[in-house]
Design a protein around this nucleic acid. Sequence first.
DNA 1: CTGAAAGCGCTTACAG
DNA 2: CTGAAAGCGCTTACAG
Lengths: 359, 359
Amino acid sequence: MGDPKPTIADVARAAGVSKGLVSFVFNDRPGVAPQTRARIREAAAAIGWRPSLSARSLSTRTSFALGLVVRRDPRVIAADPFFPAFIAGVEMGLTGEGRILVLSVVPDADTELRTYRRLVADSRVDGVFLTDLRYDDRRLALLAELGLPAVMIGHPDRSSAFPVVNLDDAHGVRQSVAHLVGLGHSRIAYVAGEPQMVHGRRRRDSFVDAMTGAGLHPDRVVDTDFSAAAGAAETHRLLDAASPPTAIVYASDPMAIAGMGVVHQRGLRVPADISITGFDGTDLARHVYPSLTTVVADPAAWGREAARTLLQLIAVAEAPNLELPAAELLVGASTGPPSHADRTPYPAHYKETPCVDAL
Amino acid sequence: MGDPKPTIADVARAAGVSKGLVSFVFNDRPGVAPQTRARIREAAAAIGWRPSLSARSLSTRTSFALGLVVRRDPRVIAADPFFPAFIAGVEMGLTGEGRILVLSVVPDADTELRTYRRLVADSRVDGVFLTDLRYDDRRLALLAELGLPAVMIGHPDRSSAFPVVNLDDAHGVRQSVAHLVGLGHSRIAYVAGEPQMVHGRRRRDSFVDAMTGAGLHPDRVVDTDFSAAAGAAETHRLLDAASPPTAIVYASDPMAIAGMGVVHQRGLRVPADISITGFDGTDLARHVYPSLTTVVADPAAWGREAARTLLQLIAVAEAPNLELPAAELLVGASTGPPSHADRTPYPAHYKETPCVDAL
DNA sequence: CTGAAAGCGCTTACAG
DNA sequence: CTGAAAGCGCTTACAG
């Protein structure tokens, strides 16, 4: 058997007070004499008692946990550096708060909504992080109906009572366009993410705006599912066009790297023939050749601040919106001036007759 | 107020039985007449009652949750496709079991051990997944002491009472070596992961064994921290050697892709000058140029089976070890026969005098 | 500022 | 096969 776990009654007995008083002390409620408070703390420490979470959960209807439900294709999420960094950041924001993170990965919208319902029905979480907001996102109404506190990661498409923690990633897209225009590009394409996602379309819109603002036609914009495969396929399509782009802006680093692979496969050079920019600032982007010009954000800071905001919302029923430093362009070696004349694609046997032999 | 949530008492009243009997039915305990059982189920469904998890947790000392504590540098984990896929698999194994996943990302060993202690002290989880097993892994003794059920993802370095769900990844490394040897390579290098991790060293050992078995000297083996930066740095070092390798086997796809970047940066060709193989079978590996020869495993299946094993262990106090299909080599375009003669590195201005212009 | 008691909503021997 | 009661370990009005 060993020593049975001490309970609040043991502490009360040791300190010569009632259980209620011990509870008051451990919940920082006023109305306990400082010396009594100290005596109770000492008694608890001596006995090695900590309040039972299960018991507290039952009487306070609190779970001391936060939830993150991720609706993504596992294949896509595996290539996306956002979530691991975001989660690590959330963890930082939770440190010392005695709360944990409940994670769920779901394949589709129905499962997603069912998962939230269930988390609430079982009192599994005290609040949730809303990532990957979509247009007409059904989660907003559901969570409002369920009365579950939530913090939105990025702005939604409509007003909502939940606080927003935002990081302006569109800024990085605008910088990408400005950078390319500054280099002399005019035929710039954009390989977007999922258009159903608010951040996906917002980035795309900011590309269109930046192009229009520069007096250029944003007529080479394609949507994808964010996968490397889609990035590669759309790159082929763009390059097959009668008037192919001289630069391509991608909505993610994996897609940009896949696109770079396509460019190389077709015997074209980066950036001499095609300039390429990514989005995410992944570690890998710095180590491909040529190193990727990309947009870096700080998803860990995003997670940390989102956690703090959610904890505040849960604690005092309201929390202000928060704006984080915008995503910034990091210029690598994958962007450069376009060639002065339009070039036709180089012969596909480039790779069979490698340049190095020709030197 | 709305309608207060129904309790077990409401169901008992509606069914005309005692609360205890309702509890028996919902816990599938024997000794309830089938018709009574049905009547109680109906009453509960009509009322919309589900047992309160908090109340069950308090009386049964069960949390209905499983834990995963990941000790990894967020930057490295972001590039590693293992965890997202593994977690998605765990989710599949949990479906319909009414259990959730608690995730924690920690930076170091002390925090890691403290996290397990805390999960147990607060009865947060009924069992945990042990990934990234290390030599002299202190978690094994700690969890045994705490009495927390655990399932080991891969074999540990010593015997342990916890069940193992294994996937032979070393097989893929052996296949990589055999593939390269078959192509005619003899100077094959290995860029390993962290040597403190059992799977890291086991893969490295199997590389050494495979080389020795082929009558070759495994004298080009370097350790890394699994980061793309380390993969790139070690690649430079290997290629700077007096007798550089003609093929490099990497312990991860991100390192292999970074290594490929280095090779290209130095004006060498893949695979004409250097063959490269990776490990993980990431989506991106198929879309770099040339496409990466890599080793594919099924981390989602690993997660699913690990979840099932852990649930079984928790339910009946024991579960058998499980062996999953081994990781298999997937040949891409990044491996080919070596050049017949030793070549010196090509001039660094390769990229300034591109081959395509020379055509 | 303090104490005794009810309540959170289940589970589980125990007696019948 | 069934019922009444104690217990899980807290929190929280309520009375003093």
